[in-house]
Simulated assay, not measured.
Amino acid sequence: MDEQTLKRRILEILMEIAPEVEPAEIRPERTLRSQVDLDSMDWLNFRVALHQQLQVEIPEADYQKLVTLDDLIRYLQAKIGPG
């Protein structure tokens, strides 16, 4: 999956959890959770949705690696492959 497609899918999944999110306002290098004001349950639901919809296993040990949108893209792209 190419980077732009993956980014779009991540943002679509995020908007399912937090419909008020404005994707154009997301800064890819900043902490994603604080930008969209997700509580811990929403953040967990987001990670579960990523796993389910992208068919990517995300071990709990890797959660601390998934801080920014850029982090998510890199991590998921490495798991999914270039497509």
Rank of each mutant, 00 (worst) to 15 (best):
E29Q: 15
I13A: 09
P82Y: 06
Q77C: 02
I80T: 10
K7Y: 08
M41T: 11
R74A: 13
L54G: 10
D70A: 14
Q4W: 13
E29G: 13
S34M: 15
M15F: 01
R27T: 13
A61C: 02
E25R: 07
D62I: 03
P28S: 11
T68G: 04
E25T: 06
E20T: 15
D42P: 01
L50G: 02
Q77D: 03
Q52F: 10
I80H: 08
I80R: 14
Q64L: 10
Q77G: 07
E29K: 13
D2L: 08
S34H: 15
I26E: 02
D39C: 01
A49V: 01
G81W: 00
I73C: 07
H51D: 10
G81T: 02
V36A: 01
L11I: 08
I17D: 02
D42I: 01
V21F: 02
D2I: 13
Q4T: 12
D62L: 04
I26Q: 04
E57C: 09
P28K: 10
L66K: 01
L32C: 02
R9H: 11
P59F: 10
P28M: 10
L32E: 02
I73F: 06
Y75T: 04
L44Y: 08
I10A: 01
T68N: 04
W43L: 09
Q53R: 14
Q52N: 14
I26H: 03
I73M: 08
E12M: 03
I80Q: 12
R33E: 00
D70G: 07
L69C: 04
V56Y: 04
P23E: 13
A49S: 11
Q64A: 14
L6I: 05
P59E: 11
E20F: 12
L38K: 00
I73E: 05
I10W: 01
D70H: 11
Q35C: 09
L38P: 00
K7G: 07
N45M: 08
D42L: 06
I80V: 14
Q55M: 03
P23M: 14
L72Q: 10
R33G: 00
R47W: 02
M1N: 09
T5G: 05
T5L: 10
V36M: 01
R33Y: 00
D2G: 09
R8K: 12
I10C: 02
A18E: 08
Y63W: 08
V56T: 09
V48W: 03
E3F: 05
L72M: 15
Q52K: 14
D2T: 15
L69K: 02
L44C: 05
E25F: 04
Y63M: 06
E12N: 06
D62N: 09
R27I: 12
V36Q: 00
W43Y: 15
A78S: 13
Q53S: 13
S40A: 07
T68S: 15
L6A: 06
M15S: 05
E60L: 14
L32S: 03
R9I: 09
D42A: 11
L72W: 11
